[in-house]
Design a binder for these strands. Structure first.
Lengths: 337, 337
DNA sequence: TTGTACGCGTTATCAT
DNA sequence: ATGATAACGCGTACAA
């Protein structure tokens, strides 16, 4: 009949009683403070004896700190399931927070209902700060964070006007530009792009880089817009491009997953890569090495992005006022172009 | 000079003062209770005015409930990054918890350090229950949950002796058996398996099902053991199988990702699928449709698994004592075998 | 070194 | 319907 329910937990009071000291002394051995060896021994014994475990809610209440930071993922449909980077970013953040003895709590915002609940959670003193990945312009969550004055860091550059909250990311535009420039240098004449997630900074910036690289030769008719950074979008986008310009001989896919989808369409259409058409992706995710041929792409240091994001919130929690940081994202050139 | 630091937040006390009523009355409008229209109006105005937002830590302290449940992912290396199901499970759980007005907080356990911190977190009253995915035998976290008497649910069947904590999952052994039986029925003579994650119940059960399906024809020399459910493991495993038995004509890969890796090796080796060798996977993840040919596999209702897991903890939190549930996982037969 | 007492922000019980 | 007031479990000046 093991009950899993009420389970009255031992408190400092109980420990004190069992050890024959006052609650203050118990509290002192728990945190750091001067306490005699004798008392300490007795108290430690008592703790083990009554099975005491601190109530963090109470501790937070008095300390006004939770030792936790939120990791917010907006729009999980595309992100949690499709974005190969998000996992690595989380891991990087967790690692960094871990060594600072902070708990990372990952919150997913999947509906209006979620939004409201997460807002309450954030306001409730559960976290000392937040890492927000892929915020869109005018996101309610962004507003809440601002209103709360909660230490925060954006992954990807900050939506709209955004006050002084720092962010960490890569130079999407610059990298895209460099990549496409190199693709063009290979002698390709008709270069198109499958542009994804244009409502996100990364998506918009990659398109901007594409355009900049091509300059006068840019042709708006050669960019296919798709909603997500995923494989299916790549399939769709490539079909569109192919029908619009059968003579296409170069393609910049907004992500490796998109490129993988495009690759399949090209194969089915009988176009050899890279012989007939040069294809490049973005992210250097696991996709890049799984395709045949492996993808030329831009390396995104996902794990480090997460680590830096964590560092930036931590610094703010400690009263600092750090600047944004953009990490290097080198081109890695393989066989697809 | 916008400070993001201290930011003294308004309390019920402030609201009461501003509205000219007592704290009790304020609390009553916040939660439900009888309060005159006049007071209510005044209080609501005051709330908006001073920008009051409830402190959940304080509320939890007195209510002894956090309205949150933890989603624990152990060993994120393989899971968070490689397992295509984990995201869907999370989403399913979040959805269910969301409608019950509970916050899902996802915690990743990536190191010994993490283990200890998460244990503290769990003990701290931050969550009313926990969903644990992929616990191994003798996991410290499992022990903590047991000792705490925290309402919990395992995804996959419970490690070791495990008390009366319910779980949700599929019949890995049965499904694997049915799948391999069908593969064998196609006339394949030498059927091998790439077995992964043998230290997890799902991995061990899939191997057991494979063995059961083959009966007397089972040959231990035809199973290659690999650590993870991922693509790279598939590559490694298939190479091994091929070198051990060049005449192999059927392969059961422990997951779709593994099958995808195996497929590449087969292609490189000049073996046609399904003509020369029949290949089947497991999970019915997005991998299954991306390969050429698409994979015959076992459909895993990941989203529903998550939803049921959430339901099971919720029920326990409300004092119930639910039974384990195993969800149907039908075979979906495509072209790879 | 140790004990006392107050406060953290809410909810809940009790009179009124 | 509303206002005091006592918990909730803990940290921490302050006094001893």
């Amino acid at each position: 009949m093991a009950r899993t329910q009420p389970q009255k937990r031992a408190t400092v009071h109980d420990v004190a009683a069992a050890a024959g000291v006052s609650r203050g002394t118990v509290s002192r051995v728990l945190n750091g403070g001067y306490v005699s060896a004798a008392s300490r021994a007795a108290i430690e014994a008592a703790i083990a004896d009554v099975g005491y475990v601190p109530n963090t809610a109470a501790r937070n209440l008095v300390r006004r700190r939770s030792q936790a930071v939120g990791f917010l993922t907006l729009e999980p449909h595309s992100l949690l399931l499709e974005d190969p980077n998000i996992g690595a970013i989380m891991l990087g953040a967790n690692e960094e927070l871990s060594i600072a003895d902070h708990q990372m709590v990952s919150l997913v915002v999947d509906s209006a209902r979620d939004t409201e609940r997460v807002a309450r959670y954030l306001s409730g003193g559960f976290v000392d700060g937040a890492i927000v990945v892929s915020a869109r312009t005018h996101d309610p969550i962004t507003r809440v964070i601002g209103a709360l004055g909660l230490p925060a860091t954006f992954v990807g550059h900050p939506p709209d006007l955004s006050r002084d909250t720092p962010w960490v990311g890569i130079d999407n535009a610059g990298s895209a530009r460099a990549l496409v420039t190199r693709l063009a240098a290979g002698g390709r004449r008709r270069i198109g792009m499958i542009a994804a997630a244009l409502d996100r900074d990364s998506g918009a910036d990659r398109l901007a880089g594409f355009r900049a690289a091509l300059g006068d030769r840019f042709d708006a008719g050669l960019v296919a817009e798709v909603p997500l950074y995923d494989y299916a979008s790549g399939v769709k986008g490539m079909r569109e491009l192919l029908s619009r310009e059968p003579a296409i001989d170069g393609v910049f896919a907004a992500s490796d997953a998109v490129a993988a989808g495009a690759l399949e369409v090209l194969r089915d259409a009988g176009r050899a890569v890279p012989a007939d058409v040069g294809l490049v992706g973005f992210d250097d995710s696991s996709w890049a090495l799984r395709t045949q041929p492996p993808l030329s792409t831009v390396h995104q240091p996902a794990r480090e992005v997460g680590a830096v994001a964590a560092d930036l919130v931590l610094r703010q929690i400690n009263g600092d006022h750090p600047d944004p940081v953009v990490l290097p994202s080198p081109i890695v050139w393989r066989d697809s172009a």
